[in-house]
Design a protein around this nucleic acid. Sequence first.
DNA 1: CTCTAGTGTTTAAGCGGTTAAACTATCCTG
DNA 2: CAGGATAGTTTAACCGCTTAAACACTAGAG
Lengths: 339, 339
Amino acid sequence: MTTIKDVAKACGVSTATVSYVLNGKRVLLPETRARVLRAMQELNYHPSAVARGLSHKRMNTIGILFGTVNTMVVVSHPYTSFILQGVLTASSSAGYNVTFCTDPWRTAELSAATYRDQRTDGLIVVAPPMDADIVPALASCNIPIVTVSYPGDPYGIASVDTDNLHGTRLALEHLRGLGHTRIAHLTGPVNMLGGRTRTEAYHHFMSAEGFHLPPEYAAGPGAFDADLAYAQTRRLLTLPSPPTAIFAANDQNAMGAMQAARDLGISVPIRLSVVGVDDTPEGAIGIPALTSVRQPLIEIGETAARLLFQRLAGDAPDPSTWLLKPTLVVRDSTAPPVS
Amino acid sequence: MTTIKDVAKACGVSTATVSYVLNGKRVLLPETRARVLRAMQELNYHPSAVARGLSHKRMNTIGILFGTVNTMVVVSHPYTSFILQGVLTASSSAGYNVTFCTDPWRTAELSAATYRDQRTDGLIVVAPPMDADIVPALASCNIPIVTVSYPGDPYGIASVDTDNLHGTRLALEHLRGLGHTRIAHLTGPVNMLGGRTRTEAYHHFMSAEGFHLPPEYAAGPGAFDADLAYAQTRRLLTLPSPPTAIFAANDQNAMGAMQAARDLGISVPIRLSVVGVDDTPEGAIGIPALTSVRQPLIEIGETAARLLFQRLAGDAPDPSTWLLKPTLVVRDSTAPPVS
DNA sequence: CTCTAGTGTTTAAGCGGTTAAACTATCCTG
DNA sequence: CAGGATAGTTTAACCGCTTAAACACTAGAG
């Protein structure tokens, strides 16, 4: 590997001169500059990002950490992979590299080393459980971070998320507009901001509308999991007064619900309407195609990355929560209730 | 940020001692060791991976580069995301970090800087076009690389891929076993190893079986693209003597073919059987569910990563091509031909 | 009681860049 | 034509950690 010294020696200048050619922080004689450039070419020289990083104390690299339990199956999951896509796009155009934190978060104690070694200039933490110590731990050692789907404010951190209140309203207004009044909810995990917020929004909307529904209509504890949703839906549909519509915390839950309905011989959407959240390909292709709240995941990833870059550049963005508007994709799993 | 000096000063030893505590390369008095460890705790010290990297000349990080044209939509693509998954899994357990090369490969000239700056110890290059200069360029400057779906041998590089010959045979034997003889092929891009190999394997199999098919049965140039496959299939199905089965270069092509058949009122699988490659979720969920050759993508990613780690550790693996066996997933898009 | 052989720690020179400050010409100004 | 400004380059310290080599000290051998 040729170093800056080799180049300097090769054309009889000091390493400082080569360095100035490299980053143009001083004016040099065109002739000198040309000679150095030629030598760099001939020697096939490429400066070491590591040495540079040590001097500059920044590596032009951000890390992305998926805060979910099962970190390793995360990439092929539609939610995370689209967020990742957005982060990569924004990073690419901002000249940043992205390193994947492969080491899943355990506890602040155990995982600190991986995230505090200055290998990355900052971190994007995606959807960490609300009860994990990861965000406070990272925040307390001044690592610049931006979170996705996590309450940022308490720690003075910028955070990006879907406007889940709005998304829930879209789904529920759609159902109510079709004439549904007996609308149940499959809850997501309470320790995830997205799940919790949708459930809160559901209750909020329902009481604002003056609907008084039995508690079984939003039974917890939930998860982002088709099997649990399946079981919960069976229970709902065998209630004396079953719901005519279900708002599921995400598409996986919705798929579980549709399966349960199918197994009970209850046709969707004729006798049961189902709305999910996430607009996954699986839902879109399912039979019937799932009506779903589409989160702007790529934009969320891009926004998170951009906020982090701003923060790293010094223009501190106000550490607040950025909510991006979801949209409702109406497909074939919703229809007016049979009366 | 506290440095090794702070720790050394805090407990009255030299930085060398702290360093030895850090990496245990010398025996120290238990008492000294304890004192240093305590200081590290109290000062909340975490060594800089960058400084370490500069000394060691390795960062314990590998890069992954997707060689396809449209790099930025790559993550959410099933092929790449599963490969990535495998790479991440293997890296995680080997203690390596993974950085995405967000900067898409342009030419050797333009992109060299990004890949030669020692930020990564080695590179996994996934499915680069065969006519791009990327692999030779990287190989010629001694960056340890492992390729996926690329002819590795010529450059003395380890390479991992699906055994496409075997996969093609699985698909074609399945069709022949059902009784098909008029089997057409939707070709993939010729500049991608996977596409090219499947087409070669198709021709090889057909002539070995003694089938003499019209050239229109495998018309090129192809692509991994549903629209082109759609057009090609329409042409095939309106031939005087149309095929009764189609072996598509991948699932996207197969989906295009099924759409074309549908639009022509030709029912799959009754009047046309279709086999794809990749076993994508979309294909699996489609109507009819697609019979497809499943590539062991996660294993491919893992293998590629492991080969790279071996290479980095010095145990040079023989730079040959590792072919992993695909399997055939039989679903509803194939059936015996109507006679 | 000297001499060697550990043992535990420090010194100091890197690793490959950056950059403030010093230096050396050259040029202009009064 | 001295004196200051300016332009182009070098010197050398530094970033934070590693590590060969030097050093100081004890302990056991002869």
